[in-house]
Design a protein around this nucleic acid. Sequence first.
DNA 1: CTGAAAGCGCTTACAG
DNA 2: CTGAAAGCGCTTACAG
Lengths: 345, 345
Amino acid sequence: MSGAVSIRMVAARAGCSIATVSRVINGTAQTSDAVRERVEEAISALEYRPSEIGRSLKTRKTRTIGIVVPSFTNPVFASSIAGVEEVARAHGRTVLLSATEYHAEREEEIIETLLAKQVEGLVLTVADADNSRALDRLDAARVPYVLLYNQPARTNRLAVSVDNIAGAKELLGQLIALGHSRIAFVAGRFRTSDRSLLRYQGCVEAMREAGLPDPEVLEVDYAGDQPEEPDALAAQLRELRSPTALFCPNDLLALAVIAASRSIGMKVPADVSVAGFDGISIGKMIEPSLATINQPTRAMGVRAMELLQALCQADPVEPGVRLLQHQFRPGGSIAAAPVEGNGGT
Amino acid sequence: MSGAVSIRMVAARAGCSIATVSRVINGTAQTSDAVRERVEEAISALEYRPSEIGRSLKTRKTRTIGIVVPSFTNPVFASSIAGVEEVARAHGRTVLLSATEYHAEREEEIIETLLAKQVEGLVLTVADADNSRALDRLDAARVPYVLLYNQPARTNRLAVSVDNIAGAKELLGQLIALGHSRIAFVAGRFRTSDRSLLRYQGCVEAMREAGLPDPEVLEVDYAGDQPEEPDALAAQLRELRSPTALFCPNDLLALAVIAASRSIGMKVPADVSVAGFDGISIGKMIEPSLATINQPTRAMGVRAMELLQALCQADPVEPGVRLLQHQFRPGGSIAAAPVEGNGGT
DNA sequence: CTGAAAGCGCTTACAG
DNA sequence: CTGAAAGCGCTTACAG
């Protein structure tokens, strides 16, 4: 605990009551110049800073919000966190941060901790927004929250997202226009991510509308933090039935897939096209640059926090999903499908 | 505030005193089975969760620590935050997060906020650990903290770092061994980062020891979040007096420099070698891969939090810097210096 | 303009 | 084994 100097000591030094000290600090009532000066002197002499704990207990406001994301190390989350934090700070709020590391069961545990800390609201990305005990708990506790990246369909929970199906369809449209017909969907545990599932759905719809077969699906165990993962990923890619394009539901995985492809002698995009989803900024710097669907990640964080702020001050807020604009970002990682060397008539 | 259900309501429903409820919850004293069961029933029926605010006020422990970093969007910080958070959680602690966005003056402001929140300690990366009003404030408040990435020299503050000078020298040694003699140090506002300054120093030392002239210095305005930055960076690179190698004190900048070099027709590494410092994992995936000095970022976060935990429980901890092992990570972004086409002889 | 007092939600000696 | 009471650091009616 800081300094252990309390309002009582300030009052003692200033020769007034603690009520007066409180009034000077918060400007919540008139005070005589003489008293105010003594109080201010005492505050700076003692380096006093009011305890938010005491204040919170009395006012029942903690000015704190919680953020829960699957991972900090994915730039998509990092940049939206920056947006959330910026807006939170602008409103005098502080941010309590947790990562689930993609363990859905950890969501509930984290929520309980944050509720105990009396957060006034949360911005979070859960595994499945339509079916989440963590969110049910928040509803029961009547603590406001805004989902970020999740795009719930069955529930009308408040969320900030892009149109994941449309985005994926758009990207697939580009691949199909480039002549790709054997496209694989390469994802990591995507069944536990409602976003990936929607992107998969968009992928399937695009293929069907083009009269093409459903995409081959490869589920990989790639978390991005184990030294053996690149080799394992490469080995798994070998199992594919020679697709000409790979669609990954997130950019980080797409980068890993490009590296793994290269390591097994598949040139990108000459031998295989690879596309991602998210629009992380590094994707623009690399060669070939990563074709992807860009999400306005920072703006999404900003928007989510603005909505949460509105909820916290009881402003009227319509439930449901706020779709922000996604954008196809072209990149050198995709190119025209290679001419068929075998198979086709 | 969650549910608004307090210990008093639980006690009322269970037909006992709040003291007993507290004892059941904390297991801090024996309770009869009958009472315990009634209390447990009440707790789950009311979905009661004790308020950390009330508890903190009484126990003077918030079980909360603060993290302050320059930015979330640099993977170096993101991955160490993940390490800190993991260890914090393991100790039942929660994490309050803030970013300075590289504004040193924001450090103090953030520290004040976190102190008001009664954090029990902090893990932080400041602009200059030897000369920091924010750290002075923490010292005065007697709140424990562990620096991360900072490598203070004049003060013996507790810190977890790599040997920045040695790391930079090692990297420069590799460049020099490849025949580079005109090497530029390309950094963004590096005078406000003690780490970058040390890396610069290592760079200079390596050059001098090899009998080479001091590196040319290019200070760039690259934050990585403005659309016009890539072009501006490229324009600045043009101003250099044709160095054969560029050393950037962080990987994120190195990636941007590689992209900018490419955009002005300089091939990496054929025309110019580029090296970074940090060891972000994406550096391994790209082509050419990024030559850099690897820092064990997650482990550094883990170590910092372990030290902080020790401080929080008043375990004896020696002050000073803990140097973790860095490692040169070879990469295709550096190659032998091109043969001199002009100038020589 | 200022103070005494109550009370926010807890924990913890102190009794019994 | 259990309860009444004090008190953590504040804010805020209520008096004056």
